[in-house]
Design a protein around this nucleic acid. Structure first.
Lengths: 206, 206
DNA sequence: GCCGAACGGAACAAAGTATTCCGCTCCGGC
DNA sequence: GCCGGAGCGGAATACTTTGTTCCGTTCGGC
């Protein structure tokens, strides 16, 4: 099957992509969206979805894991920058641009993670932590890597109807936040500890 | 009925308060929570709720309107400060502390607003705008009053299981954001226009 | 003791939604 | 050309969730 340029197999491959992309959009907009919304957005029937994923949970898990991988890739890519602060800035910017935070954190807890996902989550945490450490000297002394997590969370909360403007506005507030984190001298409450942020990853109730 | 200190009427008044408070907590945690969750949290039966509010929508509307009034009160109180920046800071801090943003913005759109609410919303917007204008000279030149709205939105997104820590962390990031807004010089995308943020207030679909 | 406001919570009905199923289409090999 | 079956659309199903109603009970005030 040498990559057909037309025909059924090709169409199936296209659908595969369309479904993933539609699922990203739909669940990004509303993590509790019904699966039919994904089918509608992708312009396919429901069975095209169930042919690929045994259940909604599997789709969610796949989506989340993809997001996690994107996160890791962004961290590894940014780590190449020689300057610690620049690396940190690049990393957060890329993650915000990829709109990956909602995919990972907001979907977590709606499915039981695989072992591989847990490993990747640990790896992602370590990479982010390393980037943070390199940048730490350039920012307010009381900052912790938990701050980075919360910055991403706050940027993800920025939302307007137009997706393009949403992206622009997120970059704007990331800039404001980073300016504040770097230059800010106003005393503030303690930064979050890792333990305070890990609750999101607990598996579905029951 | 001169404020009985015991008896049925007193109990009813207590329930009234308990219900409102429970509703605030529950809908703050999840705007789509079922009404039975409110009853459970308040420690009362469902009928105690329906005796006071004809429908869920009415309860939501009341809650949101209360939040709006708190917002207005905070703005009026903060406006008394002689220094524009201090007034602005105080205002946002009070709104964040009162956890009023989710009550207003996140509940909006789940009910059809009353005329009075619309008027109050306009008034709230005008007050916030006035506070912003007084503080504007002290911040980065491209800031708009829409930034204030988004700061509140971002702070509302900060959430950990412990409510007390949630409050502390919100204050922390408000500080970071305000530092960034005041001292930040890094160029950034255009701030949101009022039109871009008004979509939240549109009534329920249909 | 009796009345009725206030209540608890089961019962009901309407939605919403994950998953299954069946019949159709149409590519690809012969 | 023709057939088999992969791939599919979407109605049907089974079940869960949830807003609202209803009825029997409680108990403070007279």
């Amino acid at each position: 099957m040498p990559s057909p340029t037309s025909g059924r197999a090709r169409q199936a491959a296209r659908n595969h992509e369309a479904i993933l992309s539609a699922a990203r959009e739909v669940f990004l907009a509303d993590p509790r969206a019904p699966i039919s919304a994904v089918a509608d957005r992708a312009g396919v029937g429901i069975s095209a979805l169930y042919r690929r994923y045994p259940s909604k949970e599997d789709l969610l898990r796949t989506l989340c894991h993809d997001g996690l991988r994107t996160f890791i890739a962004a961290a590894e890519h940014a780590a190449a920058a020689p300057d610690g602060w620049t690396a940190f800035e690049t990393f957060l910017g890329d993650v915000v641009d990829a709109d990956v935070h909602s995919l990972t954190v907001h979907l977590a807890g709606t499915f039981t993670p695989t072992e591989e996902m847990n490993a990747d989550a640990v790896r992602a945490g370590a990479l982010a932590e390393a980037l943070f450490r390199r940048a730490h000297p350039a920012m307010r002394a009381d900052a912790t890597s938990g701050d980075a997590t919360m910055l991403l969370e706050m940027c993800a909360a920025v939302r307007v109807p137009d997706p393009v403007r949403t992206g622009e506005l997120r970059r704007r507030y990331l800039t404001v936040l980073l300016d504040g984190l770097r230059d800010g001298r106003t005393p503030a409450a303690a930064a979050p500890t890792p333990a305070e942020l890990s609750w999101r990853w607990r598996p579905p109730a029951g």
